[in-house]
């Protein structure tokens, strides 16, 4: 009986985190949607706002759905997670940086492209 009641208490806490996570996530999703559909501000502001809302929802779901940070020491889950975040950061930021740099350095001006096409005498 005692064992049963402690288990129910523990699962009630879990249930509360799922409900809280769900409500917060729906709120954040709808907020981001409304910002975009109502075009409430400038383009740059909306991009920033939507990115911030996505990040907040990411953290909410990590804490409330995936229960990150609730494990006891040693925190291997957290360690693996942080390793993933650093790899993802290098991968995404690095790709965008390299490709935009290549784009900047290697793409000729429209005029140069037209000249090249004329030289090649192709029907583009």
């Amino acid at each position: 009986m005692n064992h049963e009641s402690t288990r129910n208490l523990a699962t009630r806490n879990r249930l509360a985190t799922y409900v809280a996570g769900y409500i917060l996530s729906v709120g954040l999703t709808v907020a981001a949607y409304l910002i975009v559909t109502h075009t409430i501000s400038t383009r740059d502001f909306m991009i920033g706002a939507v990115a911030v809302l996505a990040f907040v929802q990411f953290v909410v779901q990590l804490l409330f759905f995936l229960h990150l940070g609730q494990e006891l020491r040693p925190r291997f889950k957290l360690l693996v997670f942080l390793g993933m975040v650093s790899i993802v950061a290098i991968l995404v930021i690095g790709s965008l940086w390299i490709m935009s740099n290549l784009n900047y350095r290697m793409t000729p001006s429209p005029k140069a492209i037209n000249n090249y096409m004329k030289q090649q005498d192709g029907d583009f």
Partner: peptide
Amino acid sequence: HFLDVIWIFIFTVVYLMGAI
């Protein structure tokens, strides 16, 4: 849950930012 987390970013990057 993990797939839901991935979808947040698809919704934001592909759909919301696409609409902006």
